[in-house]
Amino acid sequence: MTATNATVEKQLQQGRTKKLVGSLFRHLFLAVLAVIWLVPIAWLVLTSFSTDKGINFKNFVPEGFTLWNYTNILFSSDTVTQFPRWFMNTFVVACFNCVISTCFVLMVAYAFSCCRFKSRSLLQNLSVTVNLFPGVLAMIAVYFVLKNLNLTNSHAGLIMVYAGSSGLGYLICKGFFDTVPVALREAAKLDGASEARIFFQIVIPMSRPILVYTIINSFMMPWTDFVMAKMILNSGLSENWTVSIGLYNMLGKALINNYFSRFCAGGVLVSIPISILFVIMQKFYVEGITAGAAKG
């Protein structure tokens, strides 16, 4: 009796150690992965505090720490480091783009998801086809279209380019609208609500996740795009630039050895608003993208 008890105990013990070892390995593995994912970010943050203005090739951790890189790009602007100006420019463009793009995407998605009309499927196929052309190629033509509208070198032009074609990105949002029960809309219609009212008062309030997803995506666009922005804001006047052009410029051949650590500081500063937005809206973001993807 006691003997069997002892063996059971022993087996349990073994099972527990096995579990423990397994769990240890599992978490060790995760930790290694996490380190791989964090090393470059750590390098970014560390370098942004470095006293060395250029790239440090020899030491991962800089020899001296300073806040100078931040104070320099924030408060003493020369033509290379007009960070506050760039930040404002990008912020304004991002806000406008956010509003217009979100409206466009919702409108197109609702029309394709909830309205029935004859050219619907054709328009949808067409939009998929158009999406297959490489945007980079059309860039130069977009530039000349803007030039003909007298909108080059203006933030308005940039907003129009970002927002203009945003209607094409309706797919995920449409996938989400497709999940809104038809019965709900039918009922509202019976109550005499117009299509417009159904859109604004029933479907939109139900679509918070996808709304958030669309907002984040369109808000991030101006912070991350630099090719288009560089092409359109080509006057060479750096006070008109967006953050991405400015930071990209710092890594030019002639400047990189003097500005690399300030580039890193700029990179950290840009990440702050994006992280905040992300943390606040993460839950909806995931819901939106998965709900949309599940159906889209």
């Binding site: 033509t79 290379v80 006057s235 060479g236 006047l237 750096s238 410029n249 030019g252 051949k253 002639a254």
Partner: peptide, 13 residues
């Protein structure tokens, strides 16, 4: 108005 354009890449712009 004075704009920034590196001399070595001027033609590209």
């Amino acid at each position: 108005n004075i704009g920034v354009q590196s001399e070595s890449e001027c033609k590209d712009t």
